[in-house]
Structures are given as structure tokens and as C-alpha cells.
Amino acid sequence: MSEAVTPLNGARYEGLAIIADAGLSGMITLRGDLSSKEVKAAVKQAVGLGIPAQRQALTGQATAVLWMSPDELLLICAYDGVAETIAALEEALKGQHFLAHNVSDARAYLHVSGAGARETLAKLCPVDLAPHAFTPGMVRRTRLAQIPAAFWLEDRGVFHLICFRSVADYAFTLLKTAALPGGEVGVYR
């Protein structure tokens, strides 16, 4: 089997914020009725987490569940464990109307951290990223300059950002440019 590589292949930049390739990660899109007990049980069984509230993320040990839309979740798990997780979901949801699909290789996954992380993202996205407005556990799907992207904030202050694989280089260069030293705005200090 061919060796899997991320689109950014370990790229890293340290400026006002640290922009880093998050490495290989398993991602599964799950669509279905999020209020049903079957979906709840299936997610619990597959990644050991519950169903997050609207626009929220739940994070576990190397797993996460993100609320993407009223009928869509994104499950994050180990890259090698995707097939197994999908099999578990399919087994648990047998007979239900749902879709579970491996999108691991369709996405680029970045970490934006450091003191200037909020400011770096705020330069590019039309989102209120003030510490009181965007709090840990929140998920936001939005526009990153010219591309769609989604990010969520982890408890330790690290932003996890995903976008389409085909625009990985654009996203990385964009974030890098926004984090160039000398470009401080200081709006969130």
C-alpha cells in the first residue's frame, strides 16, 4: 500500500502565531438525525463521545466530534482506525437513514497556536474571535479569505483548522502571511 502523506507534509511556521500541519488524522463525515438515540449510541460506540450541542465540539483522547450542521457531524479519530470506526458506525446504524464516509484524505488539517492565534485567524475570517465571544469548545465553519474552512478551539488555546486538501497550500501561505512579524494589530490584547 502507498504511504499516506498530508498535503502540507509537516509544514510549520513560527511567527506571531505557530502554524503547523496537524499530521495524518482520520476524519469521518456522519450525516443523519442527530437527535435520534441510535445516532447517539453509534457515536458513543465509535469514538466514545456524545453528540455535541449546536456549533460545539467534544474532544476526547485523540478523538473529537464536531457539530457541522443540523444533520452532520465530523468525527476525528486515528488515521489507521477509520475503516474500523466506519464499520462500527454502520453496524450500529443498520436500518437507519444515515451516511458515514471517510474524508480523511479530502482535507488539510492545521494547528494555529501561540499568542497571536486569535488575531491571525481574525485577519482572515469574518468571525468575532474576542476571547469572550469565541470560547474553547466552539466550532465555526466560515470563510478563510477566499476558501471555506472550519475551525474549533481546544481547551489549551490551540485552534484546529480544516479546509479542502486542494487549497492546503493557499491556506498555509495565507495564515503564514497573516502571522508575519510586524503585522501585529494587538486588538485582543
Binding site: Q54, R55, S69, P70, P126, V127, R140, R141, T142, R143
Partner: peptide
């Protein structure tokens, strides 16, 4: 009204 996000026009 579907996801409750308040955003500016370009997101829609």
C-alpha cells in the same frame, strides 16, 4: 436560522 451562526453577508 439553521445553525444559529451570526455572520456577515459574504458568508451567505
Amino acid at each position: 436560522p439553521c445553525c444559529g451562526t451570526t455572520g456577515e453577508e459574504t458568508e451567505f
